[in-house]
Design a protein around this nucleic acid. Structure first.
Length: 341
DNA sequence: TACTCGTGGCA
DNA sequence: TTGCCAAGAGT
């Protein structure tokens, strides 16, 4: 992993933020590119937000990207551009919590600071037979306690990496390789035959079905786009216009709602093609996006928040994963249906 | 404390 | 197809 080959606290911070709730495989494709585009903390601090979001597009949890840039700005302002080595100062940076601060302090600066994240949490919970939920409260508090107690006075970097590696490769969520575990003889969960019950899994909230109808709206060589405002999903990114419809709405109802919306926002719809459905999830929502291809006959200046953009420039915008899929639909040539005025 | 915020791979 | 899961933090 490239982020283990450096001691640059900035590069390590970038990797740690990218890895929050994200798999190593997903981060691999972003880390090198991000650092090539923003090699130093000053480069990131001085970049435009859209550039940062574009570099992040597809990784998810986009607040991380904005917080990371805010952290870079904080280092420039509060620490004159020099990454702070003090744990408390690292912890004060935007988007940096207890785990990330500990990871940067131990792996960049070699300080003895404990970490608790998904892998080490599972290892510690089994090692000490923590039966409570690990999501918060007494269970989580115990994990931090154990992590601190196990921490050596030196080589904390290697120790913390090893803890994570053990959880990642041996002490896995399902079917852990206990026979290959180097600390099997210390494992309370194994001794009590509770490995399968620890860590405790909480019931997940039920998924909520939601549906949208969205359109690629064309006029000449331009396409209608909007920047997603704060408070909505994928805030800060860009998207094709859409309306929310009832998940059980009929095909024609959703189409009419969307057509009305487009005609208000951009101009009268003259031609239309039904493309396909894109399904994705946002936290507890499972979403269906019905995609249409539309043409407007007259082009008004669009409603606030919307703008026309040449088709060729869409890929430069920061797009979330669903919108990238919509963009893929655009590549097949349309088969238009005339629309009644 | 509980909820929000994305995505892709895999069983 | 569906659910689970991942190097969490902010509110």
């Amino acid at each position: 992993m490239p982020w283990r080959e450096t001691r640059d606290p900035y590069a390590i911070l970038v990797s740690e933020v990218m890895l929050q709730q994200t798999t190593v495989a997903a981060v691999r494709g972003y880390y090198d590119r991000f650092l090539a585009q923003f090699p130093t903390i000053a480069d990131l601090a001085n970049a435009k937000e859209d550039e940062v979001l574009s570099a992040w597009a597809g990784l998810g949890y986009y607040r991380r990207a904005r917080n990371l840039q805010a952290a870079a700005c904080a280092v420039m302002q509060r620490h004159a551009g020099v990454f702070p080595a003090d744990f408390e100062e690292i912890l004060m940076l935007p988007g940096v919590g207890r785990y990330t601060a500990g990871a940067v302090a131990s792996s960049a600066f070699g300080q003895s600071r404990p970490i608790v994240e998904a892998n080490s949490a599972r290892v510690l919970a089994r090692l000490f037979a923590v039966k409570e939920s690990l999501k918060g409260g007494a269970g989580l508090k115990a994990l931090w306690q154990y992590s601190a107690e196990l921490l050596p006075d030196r080589n904390a970097r290697d120790h913390n990496y090893a803890l994570m590696e053990l959880g990642s490769l041996v002490c896995t969520p399902k079917n852990p390789a206990c026979t290959e575990c180097p600390v099997l003889t210390y494992c309370e969960a194994h001794r009590l035959d509770l490995v399968a019950q620890i860590p405790r899994v909480e019931p997940k909230p039920e998924k909520i079905a939601r549906a949208f109808a969205g359109a690629i709206v064309r006029h000449a060589e331009n396409v209608l786009i909007r920047r997603i405002p704060a408070g909505e999903w994928h805030a800060g990114l860009y998207e094709f216009p859409k309306v929310e419809i009832e998940p059980w709405a009929s095909e024609s109802k959703g189409q009419d709602d969307l057509k009305n919306h487009i005609s208000q926002v951009a101009g009268p719809v003259s031609k239309l093609e039904r493309l396909s459905d894109i399904r994705f999830t946002v936290t507890v929502h499972s979403v269906t996006l019905r995609v249409f291809d539309m043409k407007v006959s007259r082009r008004r200046s669009p409603a606030p928040g919307y703008f026309w953009l040449p088709v060729s420039e869409i890929e430069k915008l920061p797009l979330g994963s669903p919108q990238k899929k919509v963009l893929n639909l655009l590549k097949s040539p349309p088969e238009w249906f005339e629309v009644e005025p």
